[in-house]
Write a protein that binds this DNA or RNA. Structure first.
Lengths: 143, 143
DNA sequence: ATAGTTGCAAAATATTTGCATTTAT
DNA sequence: ATAAATGCAAATATTTTGCAACTAT
């Protein structure tokens, strides 16, 4: 996302463009999959850019409110976010042991949901499906 | 769940029956819907029974491992659990206008999820599906 | 008798907040 | 000029843990 679009998004909400916010935005969008605040913060430090932990947390909230990212889950290792801006819909499997999150998408699943809604006269606009359990690795460890 | 069944469950795991664990079990099962550790703890105190916060956390872990309850989500207010023992599963439709929640169940949906898990080597133990949108009533009002 | 469990208080972890300083507009 | 954002350190909130005392088996 370029600087101008971001500035506009912020303006609409009476907020200001800052270097820190831009750095955080870019890092957040750079993740193809999932990320958490602490990892993002450490990576920003490593690349020499500057932004405090507090700003990371504050900016991630802003980005969520703008619809640029979304909260996927809270785990023992912190909140997991993912980019929504320019990404297509999918669902999640969450390993309750190691906190790993797998993405999946099923056209069939989507279709059935549409049908269920139709039957009930419900106009669905979005959904969240999270399957919890044990991933392949942790499943083996359990035995 | 009665004392004997619970004792047996614990025995199988080399664990002991205690008054504290029983109080916590009963309270956990008393919730029809969702609950969190802190609420459960405070309600136990209020009713005069005794069990420390530490025991609540420790016992909820045990109950989860026994499959009596399951972790539904982590939120800013703590971990949310729900009873699984003797309950049947369903999903939710949430009307974003009036806040109404409709429950539904689809065998088809369950089957497909099982298949998806199998393909990924994931051992699913539970899931949450929330469809958001407009219920019949609010849909009419919109027009 | 002994191995597991409890309660307490301290520690660990993730996140939020107050405030003085800096910065975008 | 001024209203908003920053960084820091302190505060919060939830959960975990070490340990001495207690208790189920």
């Amino acid at each position: 996302m370029d600087k101008d679009i971001f500035t506009k998004l912020l303006r609409e909400r009476g907020q200001r463009f800052t270097k820190e916010r831009f750095v955080i935005l870019q890092k957040a969008l750079s993740y193809d999959g999932h990320f958490d605040p602490e990892t993002l913060y450490l990576q920003i430090r490593k690349t020499g850019s500057k932004a405090s932990r507090a700003s990371v947390y504050r900016t991630l909230s802003v980005l969520r409110e703008c619809g640029v990212i979304q909260q996927v889950a809270k785990t023992e290792h912190g909140t997991v976010y993912e980019r929504t801006y320019g990404h297509r819909h999918h669902d999640h499997m969450l390993c309750v042991q190691c906190g790993d999150i797998l993405e999946f998408y099923s056209e069939e699943l989507e279709k059935i949901q549409e049908n269920i809604c139709k039957k009930q006269g419900f106009q669905g606009s979005s959904h969240t499906l999270e399957i919890r359990g044990y991933c392949k690795k942790c499943r083996k460890k359990k035995k």
